[in-house]
């Protein structure tokens, strides 16, 4: 890897989840720079700003105030500037409707928030080290949902 850091962004309105998320990356000892935003509006403001550093992976919670995950997903996928951002849905829900909708709208992976910190660490580690090239080209619904 030529880059010093892998840029990662999480948009989640839940403070606890943001905490678990940053804690997990701290403990993983991977060279990452994690930024978190409290809702979809904040996230999009940042991404649309000119001096923004675009992340390699964007984790999106679905249920957020102001602008929810699906709306963010739409905006990002319709802007060619964000073409290289891999999008991971990061949600409490594992309902078929949500999985279907996000898959159709171009999300790369769907992660159901684990209820165990160690599991969380493993999931995030896996997601970061995925060969995204492969993941984006060989999209299919079976491996879309990341099962732990």
């Amino acid at each position: 890897m030529n880059k010093e850091y892998m840029h990662i962004i999480l948009a989640d309105d839940d403070e606890d989840d943001r905490l678990f998320f940053t804690d997990a990356f701290e403990e993983l000892k991977i060279n990452t720079k994690v930024k978190t935003y409290n809702d979809g509006a904040e996230l999009m403001d940042y991404l649309n700003s000119e001096d923004s550093i675009l992340p390699e992976i964007l984790f999106l919670d679905l249920n957020m105030p102001k602008k929810n995950g699906i709306e963010c997903l739409h905006e990002i996928k319709s802007n060619p500037r964000f073409g290289n951002i891999a999008i991971a849905i990061y949600s409490t829900s594992s309902s078929e409707e949500h999985i279907e909708e996000t898959f159709v709208n171009g999300a790369n992976i769907y992660i159901k928030k684990p209820n165990d910190f160690n599991t969380l660490k493993k999931v995030l580690s896996d997601v970061v080290t995925i060969n995204w090239q492969y993941q984006t080209s060989g999209l299919n619904k079976d491996n879309f949902l990341l099962r732990m």
């Binding site: 839940d14 606890d16 989840d17 678990f20 249920n63 409490t92 829900s93 309902s95 928030k113 684990p114 209820n115 165990d116 910190f117 160690n118 969380l120």
Partner: peptide, 21 residues
């Protein structure tokens, strides 16, 4: 039940796991 109830429960469990660790 699927969303709002699961959310706090998940956090409780995660915190428990943190505490245990």
């Amino acid at each position: 039940a699927s969303h709002d109830l699961q959310e706090p429960l998940r956090k409780i469990e995660t915190f428990i796991s943190r505490l245990t660790d």
